[in-house]
Amino acid sequence: MADLDRAGIEELLDLADHFTEVLERDIPKVPALRGATVATLFFETSTRTRLSFEKAAKALSADVLNFNPSGSSLSKGESLKDTVLTVQAMGVDVMVVRHQAVGAPARVASWVDCPVINAGDGAHQHPTQALLDALTLRRRFGKLDGLRIAIVGDIRNSRVARSNIDAFTALGAGVTLVAPPTLLPLEVDSYPVATSTDLDSILGELDVLYLLRVQLERGSGPVLPSLPEYVARFGLDRRRFGLLDKDAVVMHPGPMNRGIEIATDVADDPRALITEQVGNGVAARMAVMFRLLSGRGQP
């Protein structure tokens, strides 16, 4: 995400804005990428991101190949390089890669001739998530300049946080990271953000409360004394929700752990933009694919 400057992000957001309009049509489809083939290769499991890319590709009239590593040659010992070269040989125009290892999509891009879209690599980056979140905020507030955004949760192990910090700050928002010390990034002073370990004290100042899933499965040894302790300090319950400004919104990249980082009634409140985020994800991914494959036609 850091490779895109403000103008680059805004160009994609403008394109995505256009595609949100397309997605509201009776026939939510344009022929922009007719004849193109999009391959999704999700070496790490995902539901919403893969479906979102597939929907985005189909809305652009592209054909979609889904690669599922379980039951594939990968489980028979084929290397990542051979796998992606095999997929390329079938004729694809863009690959969408999610992988558990940092830098894997970039590594794949060095082996294949077609563009590669990073759909999440380890704890590194999830750029299309950052685009869809920025799109959601821009559609809500008009712009991100001056917005006060807190990102709460397992930031240390979160690719969503790393991409969103880049995108939100590039677009002029102020970001505060909120987490227990074991879940804040190391060397956090080198990030362009503020930090806090006291959620209650900053809630009243926020425009956006961005909650992350507590990824207990990613920890190295015990990073939290207990889940109830986390919920007591950092969970967004009704009381904390009441401390937010009346115009403030709540976001979450999903999948949610209801009752942990977010109370179930808060998750269903109209000021929780979680389903809007999902809808905007399709438009944002259409924008990225269109941008990479443009020249094939106009939207």
Binding site: G122, N157, P185, L186, V188, S190
Partner: peptide
């Protein structure tokens, strides 16, 4: 082994930004 567990590079500014355990 406890301090090194899961690490792939020097723990510092760069590992933190890359999201690689140090």
């Amino acid at each position: 082994p406890g301090l090194a567990r899961g690490g792939h590079m020097h723990e510092g500014r760069i590992s933190s930004r890359l999201g690689i355990r140090g």
